[in-house]
Design a protein around this nucleic acid. Sequence first.
DNA 1: AGGATTGATGCAATCGATTGCGTAACTGGC
DNA 2: GCCAGTTACGCAATCGATTGCATCAATCCT
Lengths: 361, 361
Amino acid sequence: MSVTLKDVAQAARVSVSTASRALTGTGLTSERTQQRLTRIARELGYRPNPIARGLKTGQSRLVALLVHNLTNASFQVMAEVVQARLKALGYQMLLCIGGDDQQQESDTLTTLVDHRIDGLIVVPTGKNGPQLKALAKDVPIVCLVRRDDATDLETVLADDPQGAYLGTRHLIELGHKRIGLIVGRQDTTSGRERLSGYVRALREADIATDNALIHAGHFVPETGATCCRKLLDLPRPPSAIFVANHEATLGVLRVTAERNIAIPNDLSLLCYEDMPWFEWHRPAISIVDNGARDLANLAVDRLLQRMDAKGNGNDGVREYRVGARLVQRDSCRRIEAAATVKANKPKPSTSKSSAAKSAKV
Amino acid sequence: MSVTLKDVAQAARVSVSTASRALTGTGLTSERTQQRLTRIARELGYRPNPIARGLKTGQSRLVALLVHNLTNASFQVMAEVVQARLKALGYQMLLCIGGDDQQQESDTLTTLVDHRIDGLIVVPTGKNGPQLKALAKDVPIVCLVRRDDATDLETVLADDPQGAYLGTRHLIELGHKRIGLIVGRQDTTSGRERLSGYVRALREADIATDNALIHAGHFVPETGATCCRKLLDLPRPPSAIFVANHEATLGVLRVTAERNIAIPNDLSLLCYEDMPWFEWHRPAISIVDNGARDLANLAVDRLLQRMDAKGNGNDGVREYRVGARLVQRDSCRRIEAAATVKANKPKPSTSKSSAAKSAKV
DNA sequence: AGGATTGATGCAATCGATTGCGTAACTGGC
DNA sequence: GCCAGTTACGCAATCGATTGCATCAATCCT
């Protein structure tokens, strides 16, 4: 089979202990034997067995990343970043997909600690707080994107209040006064915070918030389609829509295409979180970038530090924010205060009082 | 720390060996002790340590999936499928991203066998044949999507010749005679095979192939943009473009949007490999589906069988094909012979001809 | 009834590394 | 030239499981 430390030791006519010390560079061997063993090990093609090492040291050189899915572009980016960073440090990434589901998350977490992972970056569902808290005693954990309120785990978040604020302000500066918002579930950190940023920008501009313009819903394309229709069917439809529910974007685009609504001429569109095809789309879609790459990098930084720290103690800071950034492309246009948007009603069918469907708005 | 087998054995007042045998269900223990130990283990919250077990058995219950990236929708699907299937069997997936790069692939492979993975599904670059071949002696390997010609590894491929043939024939049946092809690098299996399918369909229809209509290039959006421009600038531009280079799709869409080319009225567009937003896009984009889900499932099936077989022998079949499927949406239209074109001219909004499956509302 | 068979269990080696402790060899000071 | 102090190395235990072999009791067969 493969070359073991014993083989190397025998070839070098030293004991296994010496071989081990020489190769791991503990400084307890003479310069000469160290070099000699390094050479021999290389010649023999020796590769340490991480399993055997792990048994003794309790470390696996495995770090897990647990995300909801791989469809969301942010998660893709995060997975690639985490994998690349860790690999450079000699760790392997265990990528797990939890589907934003409590049971799956719970099962996965159990398996992961079984495997004695050295660290964990997790986008929590928020429903396994106690378990996460318990695990945190054994292994360094960093939460990403969402906070799990039942824990006090170190958390790396996007600056969603700021991002939503920037996006909304941008639209206001372009002259928009009626801005539709399609946002995520209000039981998630991002959902709540983006709504708050939107509200703050409006308030600053002395624009009254109109609940008919605000829709919160699940992270699926259908949400976008449904909410978009409701917005467009309003007696006074918005001149701009801010899609702060990333997964809903597709649904919104479909509805606008179906109704032959020209973007940005008939409607300005601003989305949240970048996707590769947004800038290739015509018109290129303006976005608020949540900084997925930075988020991932910071999470890795934090995790590595905790792993080094050997759990020697909490260092005060428990929450980090990565700044959001407005990326202007071609889907938002300036509208003049005077010139009213031409009434665009392909079918004045069921325009009723469509109150926000979701609760807690 | 955690509960070990020894703890369980002590609590049950038996030896570790008995405990081990009872819990792993070797049938060498009495029914009664087996049940008793199972109960005690559960009560104590015992979880076997995969590392310790792995050291002795040489197995890690880790299976790796090595893909080029996570941007390609097919790879996303594959990762999700593989993860789900393996998890159900008690394996953890190690997802690795090789970037279609020889060095990265090589490094990753080394790390993976170091970790004593129990199996490997790999989308090979084709440049590490010898290494793969050597590894195959130690661990079951299944190649996916691409073949590595330097090896005789079991390989699960899409039926690209057939897929490209189906797609091209579809366009021909719609009346297209000048069909542009944007395809992948010719040093890849899929690149070559899709070209051959295209050629076969044309030949069958007695249409001469025109090299000016055929472009092969790297798997990046820019390829699509460049090639699309070349096609459109031709003295006699094509009436349809078949984008069989998945990554190039974005570039093609951008150019057509830039030039205000209406799809499918001015140009029919057929793409290869599905993406979630294709059917939400307007017009919804017709595709040849490579069956990513089926590919992944088959690869897992094959791998599991090899893992069970304990390398006892090659079973003859070494290459599998998963059928491709044409998914008609709204981006291809029927074009009539010159005489009838004018009849269609006035109102070319939605072509009633091509079977549009489309959505409700 | 007594030797042979079967079944259940314990002992101890093993996987491949790491590491505390003991010891031989070497160095230097006086 | 002798002792203390350092340096380099080996021995053996250890991590937590699995597993071949030995043991002992219960059962079976003629």
